[in-house]
Every structure is written in C-alpha cells, then in structure tokens.
Amino acid sequence: MKLTATQESGRLTLALSGELDHHEAKNLIRELEERIDTGLPRDCVLDLEGLRFMDSSGVAILLKLHRRMNALGGRLFVQNVQSQPMRVLDASGIDRIIEISA
C-alpha cells in the first residue's frame, strides 16, 4: 500500500496504490486524516488508479474521509476506480453518498 499526497491551493489529491484491506487500513486512515487536517483542503480527490484490490475496510475509509470533508465544509471525490474496487463500491451502495467515477 502506497500513498502519494499533492496539494495545489485548495485541492488535495491523495493517490493510493496496492491493496487496501483491514491490515493496511489500520495505519492508512491515520495518515489520510492527518493530511486532510494539515492541508485543510476545499476539495479532496482520492485517486484510486493504482489500487488493485479493496474490500469493506476501504468502504469504511471512504465514508470516514467523506464525513471529515463534510465537517470542514469541503467535498470528497473518488476517481479512476478500477474494476474490482468498483464492484465492491457498487455492492455497498455508497455511490449514493459519495461522488465516484471510473
């Protein structure tokens, strides 16, 4: 699991690659929240182009980030979602809450 963060004015892009399961999620969520809390972005873009695998632990992380951004008055966008992670997001129905694009 690898995280690359880039901030341009009010937009924070967090790019994840590798496999996101409960094992990885434990540390990742802390790192992601830290990035948001220090960057205080208006928009947060989660780029999942390099993410090969995700399960429900990833869904919980997306929901957490969404709530965090809402609390800051900002928005979360999830983009470049690959096929296996997209199937998990579809099954969980969170595309009704979070803006997700393939």
Binding site: A25, I29, D55, S56, V59, A60, L63, K64, V88, A91, S92
Partner: peptide, 11 residues
C-alpha cells in the same frame, strides 16, 4: 463501531 460499515456479509 466507527471503523466498520456492516457491509461484509452483504458483499
């Protein structure tokens, strides 16, 4: 709690 979404069995 907060760390889980309750979607495992559904998936």
């Amino acid at each position: 709690g907060d760390d889980r979404g309750g979607m495992g069995f559904t998936i």
